[in-house]
Design a protein around this nucleic acid. Structure first.
Lengths: 252, 252
DNA sequence: CGACGCCTTGACTAATCTCAAGGGTGGTGG
DNA sequence: CCACCACCCTTGAGATTAGTCAAGGCGTCG
């Protein structure tokens, strides 16, 4: 059951990092996103490369990822989807998916039909701006992953990714102090960072030994965020969380 | 001097790969993009990380790139911009640039003021759709680079990039048979593929020895595209060039 | 009680980087 | 006009990083 309270809707929370929505806007957005909710188990396929793009979908709970398989079985994870992430917002423009999307944990996905979505956007420009901001941040994250894979060494790469995930989870209220859930296997981290599973394992052990992270039982603890940021050259600028649309804030 | 004929405008040509524009739309788009043209030399900065996003800009001729520097001087090239590429279409939404843009060759850049741009979009939905398509293709390219850096070995990586550039150049009419200009140094290829310059050099020699590419004096020749595609596991699907908006074609 | 997935370790191999140096070319200033 | 410099491409040798293969422990779930 999706939460009844708009304020606990992770997309609503995320957009607060851009500009404050009005009470009415929160209600509308939450309602549209929870009218039709699918519950899906872990490690299932949501969208298949080559297939038709799905309806606009919002991850309400759980984790998923975009990924691409090569013909010989190599997999690259392109992005992690966490609660509050909208996917295929503009899917209807393309004929077919160029990558796949699959769940990592059990998830709840809210599906919004195109006409309903367009209606919300045209009636609520602040929401439209917020979702545009979200799309741009998504592109910035993809660029940062390019940097990560291309120019950072193993400890930086893994640590940087963990930093990013922590900050993103924080922006939707899914952290508790310096801790958060991290339901990823080392194999998934490897496919996201372009490394082998064995090397991820050794790298994590190094990060642990340097007391940069504590990671066990699917929980990540960051003892000292500043130190980890410095060690991994993480600068959160690219996440554009500084309420860049603050001038659009609703007044109610 | 920008070309006077809309049909030779590289953006107009590119959008033809999505849906056919009307005569009037071509004229409007070309006109808006060439009202104010800046000419800039090679290896100059167009936009600086941390600075304010620029006006909407269209690369009319020459090459540029998006890139990011790390604090110790490592550079990652995030994207190559070729004629017809629009950049910072939605820059106004973000407060500051999270990466830089610089020229690689001398370029001509058309700048379009935001109000003028919005006017064109709202009056010409087919252009708006085309530019949205272009943005989505840009995101798909960024994802493909993620795959390239994360999961392909050196020869695949370089060859795949060359395939992509060739096909993109083709889509704006900048190839001649199986040849195209490729004004990149091996150092720039290295920063794009996440490799060292030395290794790029050796990899190119391997590709040459296998007769997959001919690359000299800034000209790339691909003797057999099918073989190169197979060797580098290149599938052009992600470029979405199959006229996916064909149902929107103008009738004049 | 297996079977399986996940994390871990060791030993070995392969890919890639770094450092160093030389040749070619084009542009610039004396 | 020529010397010089900067940049680019190339090559070799050695160091380093990361991958592969193989195996064992541990917990979970049917």
């Amino acid at each position: 059951m999706p939460p009844a309270d708009p304020h606990s809707n992770p997309l609503v929370r995320k957009l607060d990092n851009f500009a404050r929505l009005s009470f009415e806007e929160r209600r509308i957005l939450h309602h549209a996103a929870t009218e039709r909710v699918r519950r899906i188990g872990a490690r299932e396929s949501l969208v298949h490369e080559g297939g038709k793009p799905p309806d606009i979908s919002l991850l309400l709970s759980g984790w998923a990822c975009r990924y691409k398989m090569l013909s010989d079985g190599r997999r690259q994870i392109l992005a992690f989807l966490i609660p509050g992430d909208l996917f295929e917002q503009n899917g209807h423009v393309l004929r077919e998916m160029d990558h796949s999307i699959g769940t990592l944990t059990p998830v709840e996905v809210g599906e919004i039909a195109r006409p309903r979505f367009d209606e919300v956007l045209s009636e609520r420009p602040r929401i439209a701006q917020g979702l545009l901001w979200d799309t741009l941040v998504g592109a910035a994250i993809q660029r940062e992953w390019t940097v990560n894979l291309g120019r950072r060494d193993a400890p930086e790469r893994v640590g940087h990714l963990l930093c990013e995930l922590f900050v993103r989870l924080q922006s939707v209220g899914l952290t508790l102090g310096n801790r958060c859930d991290l339901p990823l296997t080392q194999n998934e981290l490897a496919d996201a960072t372009g490394m082998s599973t064995v090397h991820v394992n050794r790298t994590i052990q190094d990060l642990r030994a340097a007391n940069l992270i504590i990671l066990r039982e699917k929980t990540l603890t960051i003892p000292d965020m500043d130190t980890l940021k410095r060690a991994t050259r993480f600068s959160p600028t690219y996440l554009h969380l500084q309420r860049v649309g603050g001038h659009l804030d609703a007044s109610d």
